[in-house]
Simulated assay, not measured.
Amino acid sequence: MIAITLLGVPWALFALVNRQIQRETLPSKFKLGWFYAEGSCGGFRAYAFGLSEWSAKEITQQGIAYFADIDVSDHAAVRKMYHGEWKATPLPSSFFGDGLASILHCGEKGSLLWPTGVTEALKRSGSYYQQSGMRVLFVLPQPGLVVGVLD
């Protein structure tokens, strides 16, 4: 019992700190829900947070215009990890062949709670993404997720 406590407490603290750091990489304009999942493999990480219903509705109504002020100080991320122009989905077919899709696969295979429907949402219109190299931030109003991919 003591060994479990000695190992479990530091792991739980690390997990909570890691989750907060990941939350801070997302623009604060996104109001997040309760859902969270993370998976990794080969040095790549993918994580998903649930979007609040309000944020999902606002993004759906405003479309790409929602992102126009995303870098304004009161809407920006505390830890700026993602850069680049916001674009609408569907993703170009090359995305699924150049390795980025495999990072999403790492999220899926490395997490017991990884949400379904991420790849499908990226193949149709209605979602948005920002990419700089292997770092990509996906915003999927339907199914109500924000997915971050880090190298």
Score class of each variant (00 low, 15 high):
S52R: 10
F138Y: 12
D98L: 11
S93Q: 12
G148H: 10
I21A: 13
Q131I: 14
L150G: 06
D69C: 09
T119V: 15
R19P: 09
Q131F: 03
T60I: 04
M81K: 13
A37S: 14
V72G: 00
T89K: 09
E120I: 01
G110I: 10
K29A: 15
L113D: 07
D98Q: 05
L32H: 08
I2C: 04
S55Q: 02
D71I: 03
R23A: 12
A101Q: 11
V149N: 00
I64R: 10
L6M: 11
I4S: 12
T60W: 05
Q20P: 00
A12P: 01
F96G: 00
K80G: 00
S132W: 12
V136Y: 05
G110E: 12
R124F: 02
G126V: 05
F30E: 00
A15Y: 13
V149Y: 04
S73Q: 06
W114M: 13
D151G: 11
A65C: 01
P90S: 06
G39T: 00
L113R: 14
D98V: 09
R45F: 14
V136F: 10
W86N: 01
L100Y: 08
K109E: 12
P143M: 07
V78P: 08
T25D: 02
S125L: 04
K29G: 05
A65L: 08
G84N: 06
I103S: 09
Y36C: 02
P90A: 09
A76Q: 02
G43V: 07
A3H: 09
L16A: 12
V146G: 06
F95E: 14
V146H: 00
S125T: 13
L13A: 08
S93P: 05
A12M: 14
Q62P: 06
K123N: 02
M81I: 12
I59Q: 06
G84I: 05
S28G: 12
S28V: 14
A121H: 04
W34A: 03
G63N: 09
H75M: 03
A46D: 05
Q131A: 15
A3N: 11
S125A: 15
Q61F: 15
I4W: 12
K87Y: 11
V78F: 14
A77Q: 01
I103Q: 13
A12K: 12
R23Y: 15
S73D: 07
I64V: 15
Y36N: 05
V147Q: 00
G133Q: 08
H83F: 13
Q61M: 15
F138G: 07
P10H: 03
S111I: 04
A101N: 13
F35Y: 14
W11V: 14
I59K: 04
T25N: 01
G133K: 05
G8T: 02
F49N: 04
K87D: 03
L16P: 01
Q131P: 00
M134L: 13
H83Q: 07
L113Q: 09
L6D: 03
K29L: 13
L7D: 05
C106Y: 15
G144E: 10
E85H: 10
A46G: 08
E120K: 11
R19F: 07
A48I: 10
G144M: 11
S93G: 04
H105W: 15
Q22V: 03
